[in-house]
């Protein structure tokens, strides 16, 4: 079972106040720390668990600048055999371009695989489509939101996808295939600093991105501006008598879709 796992280095922004440049063309991430995308962490863990059971090798692949080497080291520390960095100039905002790059890379470098894993989405852009686009371009079957792998058969795999409202769908999908892995499918192991130091001794491979685009489509979509969403200032205090406030509360629950 050879698995390629796509990993991305993302800024950790949950707690940060982000600043947008006055002209709206960029978001200042210079003081924000980075780490492996959380969903990819689950994807690597799932791949490692599968290969521990079934045998096979895992290759981590990442697109980004040299700093992204960090997530490959982590993937290796978790159990990947090696890591490939597709070095790109600047950030690739369009997931289509990202998928195109990956397709070119996988085909040109003749990476062999039974499955390609990625996280459901990246914490930074929250697009959630790179794996699906890649699958379609490679002509492979695809499933997203994979929350459980139930059985591996000869040429197929039985898995569960997470749907809404606590419901899952069990499907059978032929290999080779592309799966995007949902958080919560497993509990990713802790990777210690010593583990990462050891992993640093495993050589990673570096490739230049421009080789794989075939002069083809640059971006199909462009970010033209960044802006702040409407700001919330503390809680909206519901006003009125007990009955009114409770009615408003039920209204909010309905609006949020947790009450029928």
């Amino acid at each position: 079972m050879d698995i390629i796992v796509l990993t991305k280095r993302v800024p950790v922004t949950q707690e940060e106040e982000l600043k947008i440049a006055p002209d709206g063309t960029s978001v200042d991430l210079s003081r924000v720390p980075f780490r492996m995308n959380d969903w990819d962490n689950y994807a690597v863990e799932e791949a490692v668990r599968l290969c521990e059971k079934q045998g096979g090798v895992i290759t981590g692949v990442s697109i980004g600048d040299m700093e992204s080497d960090e997530v490959l080291r982590r993937a290796i520390a978790m159990g990947a055999k090696d890591g490939c960095l597709i070095e790109s100039q600047g950030v690739v905002n369009d997931p289509f371009t990202r998928a195109l790059l990956l397709k070119g890379f996988i085909e040109k470098e003749n990476l062999s695989f039974n499955m390609i894993f990625g996280g459901v989405q990246a914490e930074d852009d929250q697009f959630g489509v790179t794996c699906g686009i890649l699958a379609a371009m490679l002509g492979l079957p695809f499933a997203s939101m994979v929350i459980g792998i139930d059985e591996i058969q000869n040429d197929a795999i039985i898995l569960r996808r997470e749907l809404e409202g606590g419901i899952q769908e069990r499907i059978k999908i032929k290999m080779p295939c592309v799966l995007s892995i949902q958080s919560g499918i497993n509990e990713p192991r802790y990777v210690s600093i010593m583990g990462i130091r050891k992993a640093s001794k495993v050589e990673r491979k570096y490739f230049k991105a421009d080789k794989y685009l075939d002069g083809g489509a640059g971006s199909l979509i462009d970010v033209i501006r960044w802006f702040y969403p409407p700001k919330k200032e503390g809680a909206v205090i519901l006003q009125g008598e007990l009955e009114d406030t409770c009615k408003q509360l039920l209204g909010i629950l309905k609006e949020k879709g947790v009450l029928q």
């Binding site: 950790v12 003081r31 924000v32 720390p33 780490r35 802790y190 600093i193």
Partner: peptide, 28 residues
């Protein structure tokens, strides 16, 4: 820790300390 098998709340504290240099994962 080296085996990677520790309670989740401790794991979170360590991962936050690695990234943000404090166990609560607050911005440095």
């Amino acid at each position: 820790v080296e085996n990677g098998d520790i309670p989740v709340t401790i794991q979170k504290a360590l991962e936050s300390t690695f990234v943000q240099k404090n166990p609560w994962g607050k911005p440095r």
